[in-house]
Design a protein around this nucleic acid. Sequence first.
DNA 1: GATGAAATCATAAATCG
DNA 2: CGATTTATGATTTCATC
Lengths: 202, 202
Amino acid sequence: MADLDDIDHALLRLLRQDARRTFSEMAEKVGLSVAAVKRRVDRLRELGVITGFTAQIDYAKLGWGIEAFTELRYSGSAPVSEIIRTATVAPEVQAIYTTAGDPDALVSIRARDMRHLQQVIDTLRRAGNVTGTKTLMVMDVWTRSDVDPMTPTRPSAPSGQSGQSGSPGPSGPTRGGPTRGSGTNRLPGASGPSSTRPRPAS
Amino acid sequence: MADLDDIDHALLRLLRQDARRTFSEMAEKVGLSVAAVKRRVDRLRELGVITGFTAQIDYAKLGWGIEAFTELRYSGSAPVSEIIRTATVAPEVQAIYTTAGDPDALVSIRARDMRHLQQVIDTLRRAGNVTGTKTLMVMDVWTRSDVDPMTPTRPSAPSGQSGQSGSPGPSGPTRGGPTRGSGTNRLPGASGPSSTRPRPAS
DNA sequence: GATGAAATCATAAATCG
DNA sequence: CGATTTATGATTTCATC
């Protein structure tokens, strides 16, 4: 797990709010020189903490006003690769989350209208060995925005997993939805300055 | 619904792949001048098609290796605002999708480990009038990345459409977190609402 | 109404201390 | 890490179709 200091977290927060910010602007906000900021951002990318930069799009404005989540159940023990393959057949599928437990997967779908959604679901049902689906129509979306990427804060306890570094990722594909600036994203029990990396902020 | 031509879609695709691309680079790729590209991107922002630019972060690298979706059920008829409020109490909640039907909402959660996730869910259960929850642990995530924002593809048939084959292609942040940012300080341009624009595809 | 070209200003990238 | 220099890109203006 990368060891980042407060400035690195501040940079992540700034880039999260606006990925097109200039280094100059960020430098001013965090109190470092432009060169230092660039070096840090480059490092964050090398570390894989920042995986990329993307534009957020309001699909509804492009004519794709329907958003839904469909739970998929497969027969037998379908391997993850199989699940992803089948769900990928439809271009309307935006994301696929393979899960442990009852539904075997949860897929995020974007469609133009109900009829279109129906077709997508039918396609999914026919692909591979899907035994059942359950669809949730999304009415409204709220995504955390005020946030800065969470700071590591001390691990709560030796319990579950530890590793799993792959590259998970929640994600609500953009949606013109509402955005509320509320929650803080500081951890409740958080405390300790987790930063392990000595980095004089000056 | 905004009327965009092929070049606009190409720009959306390019910015989706890498939001920090320079106008010069995009200009070269789409075959227009830098000025023209800037004008179009500014317009896409004014239209609200592009809602912002954000950095995609690998939370696992920050020590948040657990990702889960929790379905929430509320007693009575909890209004959307109430649902969002309660789910927002936990900073670990990344996104909230209020849905029509059985679960009243689906929330995306990020946690350090199982124990931590447990705490978050407990918090949600206690907040507001949540009557039940069901959690899906995310094992793997796949998000559409090869794509360009879906093109409206002409509603080919009577009712809605049938051939959804056009050239859609949703796209999800390659793998990052919930997205939602908004302001960009670059690309200001915004000024007057530019009314519809029937434009020659050049 | 939209574009391209050129001039000006801002920012990024590279180098050096 | 900061400062300076140099290269590149962003913006605005203006003339053209």
